[in-house]
Design a protein around this nucleic acid. Sequence first.
DNA 1: CATGAATGAGCCTTCATTCAT
DNA 2: CATGAATGAAGGCTCATTCAT
Lengths: 210, 210, 210, 210
Amino acid sequence: MPKETFFNLPEQKRARVIEAALDEFAAYPYHKARITAIADQAGIAKGSFYQYFADKKDLFKYIADLIVNKKLEYLNHDMMLNKDKYGFFELLHELYLSGFRFAKENPRLIDIANNLLNNKELQRELWNDYEDQSFDYFQLLLKEGLAKGELDPTIDTALVSRLLTGINYSLGDILYKGKDGKIDLDDESGLIETIDKMLAFIKNGIKKRE
Amino acid sequence: MPKETFFNLPEQKRARVIEAALDEFAAYPYHKARITAIADQAGIAKGSFYQYFADKKDLFKYIADLIVNKKLEYLNHDMMLNKDKYGFFELLHELYLSGFRFAKENPRLIDIANNLLNNKELQRELWNDYEDQSFDYFQLLLKEGLAKGELDPTIDTALVSRLLTGINYSLGDILYKGKDGKIDLDDESGLIETIDKMLAFIKNGIKKRE
Amino acid sequence: MPKETFFNLPEQKRARVIEAALDEFAAYPYHKARITAIADQAGIAKGSFYQYFADKKDLFKYIADLIVNKKLEYLNHDMMLNKDKYGFFELLHELYLSGFRFAKENPRLIDIANNLLNNKELQRELWNDYEDQSFDYFQLLLKEGLAKGELDPTIDTALVSRLLTGINYSLGDILYKGKDGKIDLDDESGLIETIDKMLAFIKNGIKKRE
Amino acid sequence: MPKETFFNLPEQKRARVIEAALDEFAAYPYHKARITAIADQAGIAKGSFYQYFADKKDLFKYIADLIVNKKLEYLNHDMMLNKDKYGFFELLHELYLSGFRFAKENPRLIDIANNLLNNKELQRELWNDYEDQSFDYFQLLLKEGLAKGELDPTIDTALVSRLLTGINYSLGDILYKGKDGKIDLDDESGLIETIDKMLAFIKNGIKKRE
DNA sequence: CATGAATGAGCCTTCATTCAT
DNA sequence: CATGAATGAAGGCTCATTCAT
């Protein structure tokens, strides 16, 4: 966690620091990112940085938290609060839609998140207690879906959660990895169509059959 | 490519160097990996290292090649050579089976591969011509599957390739990420069962319906 | 150019760094000179050095500039500014006199300059745009001397410039290379006498004859 | 001095080693020249090199000797042996002529020589007993010239020797330093003309006057 | 709270030289 | 006499972090 001093900072300066950190961590993997560059871009003294944060790790944790919270903002509809009122596939649809929206509006954050998601070493270094929340959340949703009778009762929720998580991780690639699979986020209808295809794929895979 | 001197080395010493490199690259991301540590563990002088390899990059490329080739060994059945004689889902089954076997027997290599697969920056640094082969291969298989009439003709092969790639990348997690989703690789029948579940999930998603 | 930090340094410390650099570059050719030695002698951490200078080359360029400027100080009489008011041989006399004075008071700088002047390889590495200023300056003086009617109109100014440059480079040797040819710089009258001899030699060589 | 083994070598191999050394020392200053490169180019094992020479210094000394001897070959007319039969300026003329011829036919050697001539540090490292032979030789010639009554008896032979040496060193520049002062060595008559101009310059400077 | 100079461990890499075969 | 692997000291440079002001 940043030190108190950081939060006492004038809004604007705090924003500059965050902005600089996002740029640096999006551009370079954790170990190559330089706090010197961040301080420079933020227009603060290198010494000042250490009055705000304990160290590089501290900053990165904070940034990671920001990303998670930012991501949550995109979900924060009454839907998620009233999960029981919606169907599993409706919820999944919303999840993907928000995911794409987040990706569209926050490309830098996606880069940083990918950086972290695939660097177990770093995760361990940052959070000894790291848990895969995505996995847990999918499993929760799946169990509720089962309870509601929407899903094939024979599915292995743990395994399917992993599969859904795997698919989830590939959202970024679907957006960025050029070529055929790429989606134009500005094309709202095309986006919906893509989500529908994904959902169809998944739905066929796990829905209850009579 | 390593220098000739490396291949002239006594089998045993060469093995020590490779072993040390695998350990280091599995434990640390590329930029954090230290050739000093590798030389130390291998029991060679730091200077000797540079008689075997041009530089760190050279070593890493070599290690990456080793991994690719090792992975290929697991696939190298007549199946892959005679793709046309087998069904799409049979091939996928084999793919996953070999994937799991590889993962089981080469946990370190999985770490290194993940490290690389998710660090585009590094890929570009190492191979200007890098292409996502996994994606391409799935797309090829899918098109053949369509031609054979096994798959739903309405699927978007590019998108499905991404989804399958995403699932593929999560194979490692399915094995290692603790808790429920974890598979015991020593339990052959459990493994087969898992693969069957995955295949069922995917099959339902894309197979041809009458 | 050194970084700002270098110029913000307390006079004394800055002097120590320069002093150490002069010692090192006077004692060893560029590629043999060690910044470690410089840092040690200056009493600063090796890391600090790189807060003052971008790299070894940066330091050397700075030192070279210092030398050039120091040398110019010795010439900086109104004479050079009002070249037209003086005769060619008067100017040459002043040139040599100041050259000897500079050499006498800055023996280390002479060593460094020689080091550079005779290492084209290095010059190219440091300045892509390097030009032989000494040659150009002599040629200019010669042309003015011709215009004033002081010099034999049949001389080849390019060739003579080379010859004068060659002689010029040997000023250092005349001072330092022991034995007979050596001048005692503390003996002002002896020095003047030497210059007169040199001038006589040159004058006879190129003056206008009736 | 090279070890005996070197001289026992088949002519051809010995030549390859020398050739390689000349190339390397002409291309790089002593401290940057790599014996690895020499061994490679010569097509010998690095270890073999140390069977021929004690070390890098030993090789360089040998090369320097070769150059000196090569240079002497160009002088080795009866003229030098019967100095007394010729006039001072005749001898000087021959000296320059041979100098230019040597330069024309051995550009690499010139580079190496310059390298050495202007690196006092290296000279000291190589020959504790280093003496400026050029200076001594000019002084000898001058004294003989005086004895013959060809030269102005009031000249300071030590000083003039230095001046002539300085001019001598600039021979290389006269050839190579592009621009106006450059001589086309293939133009025999132009070359003679240049030498005549140089001689005129010097002759005017020191000849006996009535 | 700001500043920015100071630090030093540690990195990758080079190369002359040795030595066992 | 040939070979070429082995060595290790040393070099230039980076950067997170500390600290005095």
